[in-house]
Design a protein around this nucleic acid. Structure first.
Lengths: 323, 323
DNA sequence: ACCGTTTGATTAAACGTTAAATCAGAGGTT
DNA sequence: AACCTCTGATTTAACGTTTAATCAAACGGT
């Protein structure tokens, strides 16, 4: 590893001058800057992040903690975050909170111990992370707007509900996966609010109530909306098994726009999150906090996008036959 | 941040003694060790990784590069790796190669510049990473056994093919997603090899040949095997649309055991990778390399596991009717 | 009583970088 | 000619940790 001293010796100048020349901070003649830069490149100099970290008290590393790295959204967030961070010369260290609040705070601690300059946290369901000694951006939770960025889950719910209402559906069943999840609550709240009184709405939760869902459809509901694509896939299975055709007999919607939404038949109408946007905002919050400024765009929500595919259509009049 | 010096001052001893006491390296009386440890805990001392890194020349951080963070397997690998690394006090920095070989080597460079002690690489399709200045473990490529750990893709192919053959199928269609992918080639090779001459086998590739697949089924093939669950989902759609029922008319298999394999109806028979095992091995390779030993378990393959669900059954005799 | 050994601790230097303080000289002003 | 200013560079110290070298004292043995 070639250090700043070797460049100094090679050029015949003091280490400080090299440092100044390379970082553009002190007072160095422009010709000297050129020479030093040339030699640095020639020797293949790479600044030691460790040395710099020690001196500056900053590591240039951010910690990313997700509730469960198995979360289907994780890859996209991680990717976008990683790209955005790269652009600023920051690195991203991953931490996994393994599905429980306790591990979440341990993961946070480990990252802080490693000296990360900031944290990006997608909190555990219902477990808001305790305040940390470094700047922190919270991703994805609508409830607390402090330093948080979130997709507009309720807005997305409204969006897709408007689509369904616009098609002319009058009786709709909504299926959520987990009552505890704030995100899913928000999504459903958005749908319900949009429908208001113009559409008859029934909300069911979880695998257990799947059979109730079939009953509801048999009783005349013409659309099923879910809070996740995976759930929609399961619903599709059950509907098909019960003799209902999508979208002819029932329209079906998902949420998240996972790869499988595209692979399904019929391809799933769903809501896509603007992940790059979310990642960028989250990063802006931490970097801004790190630089001592207050966070921009407090609690602002990133709009969702409606993706219309083949699983939704106008309701067809059908005879009341229970298969 | 409380440093070693403050502990030293508090205890009334030199910094070196504190360091020795805490790391257990030099010669310190046991009572002094106790006192120092007590004070350290009381003051909430956290060793500065930066200081240590500078002195030792090691950061305790590993770089993880994946071809495309959108890869459905990424979350699981990342999670297991992160857990295993934590256990050894190592951190994991992520890098994304964004789907092209060029970005891959840039990502590797960035991580090396950051001073990672080692690299974990899941290579781009067909793009073997150039040698790096730090210990590197290659995950997932069967071709080059040097410092690589891979799931036994061919073995998994054989495994699931044996299952199909065991059920009594005599005519099988295999669908691959991308000819370029070594992994998919291996999977198919395993299947074909297992069938040998006892089962009539036809191999098709990609979305374009999906219609050929339907034709083949119409012509009497009783099982369709794919190289990924996502592909299987698409096949299921097409089969259903063409009037074939799974598994009554056709058996169907996937590969990877993604969450959707479970959510589909019928639930998909597939092959699961032992991701924790792969992650552990990969980590063993780098850590061992870092410690100056040569890598253990050279090129050894991690066995796959057959997951039997409802998408496969004995072939049913059916009349030769082309729907 | 003297010498070698062991024990427990200290000093000093080093890792690579940077920021503040200092310094030598050139140039311009009174 | 004495003074101030500006420029371009150098010294020095510091960040927190580790380690090799050193040192003082206590101990045991002849």
């Amino acid at each position: 590893m070639v250090s700043i001293k070797e460049i100094a010796k090679e050029v015949g100048v003091s280490p400080a001058t090299v440092s100044n020349a390379l970082t553009g901070k002190g007072r160095v003649s422009s010709q000297m800057i050129d020479r030093i830069q040339a030699v640095a490149k020639e020797l293949g100099y790479r600044p030691s992040l460790a040395g710099r970290a020690l001196q500056r008290g900053q590591t240039g590393i951010l910690g990313l903690v997700m509730p469960d790295l198995t979360n289907p959204l994780f890859p996209r967030i991680a990717q976008q975050l990683s790209i955005a961070a790269d652009a600023q010369g920051l690195g991203i260290l991953i931490g996994d909170s393994r599905g429980n609040p306790d591990e979440q705070s341990q993961a946070l601690h480990r990252l802080v111990d490693r000296g990360v300059d900031g944290l990006l946290v997608v909190p555990q369901m219902g477990a808001f992370p305790e305040p940390q000694p470094v700047p922190t951006a919270i991703i994805h939770t609508a409830s607390d707007p402090r330093n948080s960025v979130s997709g507009d889950h309720a807005g997305g719910g409204s969006l897709i509900a408007r689509h369904i209402a616009g098609l002319g559906h009058k009786r709709v069943v909504i299926l959520g996966g987990d009552r505890v999840s704030e995100v899913q609550q928000d999504r459903i709240a958005g749908m319900v609010q949009e429908f208001a009184t113009s559409v008859e709405t029934r909300v069911l939760w979880g695998e257990d109530e799947l059979s109730d869902l079939i009953t509801a459809v048999s009783d005349g509901a013409t659309a099923v909306m879910t809070t996740s694509d995976l759930l929609a896939l399961r619903v599709l299975s059950h509907l098909t098994r019960s003799g209902f055709s999508v979208p002819r007999d029932v329209s079906l919607t998902g949420y998240d726009d996972l790869p499988l939404a595209w692979a399904m038949h019929p391809a799933l109408t769903t809501i896509a999150q603007d992940v790059p946007q979310i990642a960028t905002r989250a990063l802006e919050i931490v970097t801004s906090l790190i630089n001592g400024n207050s966070a921009p765009s407090q609690g602002e929500m990133v709009p969702m996008r409606l993706v219309i595919r083949q699983s939704t259509s106008k309701p067809n009049p059908r005879q009341e036959s229970n298969p």
